[in-house]
Nucleic acid binder design. Sequence first.
DNA 1: ATGGTAGGTACCCTA
Length: 268
Amino acid sequence: MKILTWNINSVRLRAPLVIKAIQALAPDIVCLQETKCPDPQFPEKIFRDAGYEHAHFTGMKGYNGVAILSRVPFHTVDKWDRFGKADCRHAAVEVISPKFKKPVQIHNLYIPAGGDIPDVNVNEKFAHKLGFVDEMGKFFADTYTRTDPIVVVGDFNIAPLVNDVWSHKQLLDVVSHTPIEVEKLTAMQNSIGWVDAIRHFTPEPEKVYTWWSYRNKDWKASNRGRRLDHIWVTPPLKDHLKGYKILSDARDWTQPSDHVPVMIELDL
DNA sequence: ATGGTAGGTACCCTA
């Protein structure tokens, strides 16, 4: 089973690029973030016509929004409001796997970016981000155990490791790579023993990026990337990891997202 | 030290 995650920054604008990524990678399940689309306007048909007839999404006007599209049947698990806000950042489904006795859940997550200033006293968006990550860790610990087969994917907006950013030293005070964010994300990861599936294949100190800012003249030449998008699995799935792909080419497509598609293949 | 770009929306917010 192939699971793709991509922050596409407007699903209505970039649905054709999602189709292009689907044609390149042939995922079974596609998890999108930043759909920026209220549910009644979600472009379901274009994905249905491409073979992804199952969909679970939660969106709102202008901001945020997550969607799960699938060519295999799933059961909807739920969608959640997080940290007291109805901001459409978390949804989950479950699929039946012949390898496991119980269903495998897939969680799609869009963690808040957190604003520019890494100080909770002057920046409420940063406080929201840290609180959101705390709440996710508590949710996983309260709802599951580390023996449940679960996948969580999404734009976590945090690059936790030294080589998840182009310059560890220069980004220590930049939101996405500050020590407090890394501490919170690590606590969330430890909640039920999440395994970082991308680093399973490309351990430190190899540089791995999934996002390059729009504000760089030449993203490829400057290569000031960050690994903000993640795929984690619980311990029972670790031995079933078969491969991964980061489609960096997509950063060069016409009208690109600033994030690129990240995919994991699991033997389920 | 600063400002750079993008999308959605409505004249500004978030990323």
